[in-house]
Amino acid sequence: MPKDKPTLELLRTVGDTFGAHPFSDEDLSELVEPKLGMITSFKDLMDELDQLRTIDLGALPPALEIKTKDSTSDE
């Protein structure tokens, strides 16, 4: 479900409120209205992350060390 478009004020509040680095309005504006082309759309990213929440991962843990079926030396 698409969410509201993030606003500059909202993003600024995160840095101000949650003990995080205070990025400049210029940097945060790039997330709201992209001009550089690297972050093509923060809003799209958020919408995709929202869709990823619908995948049932059960109790699958975050990625840990790579194991193979014949692996014994990593234990």
Binding site: F23, D27, L28
Partner: peptide, 18 residues
């Protein structure tokens, strides 16, 4: 620097899910 700003706005929930 903008990419790093993006990193700040991603919820821990999303990071762990990824």
């Amino acid at each position: 620097r903008t990419g790093l700003a993006l990193g700040q706005q991603i919820l821990a929930e999303h990071y762990v899910r990824a």
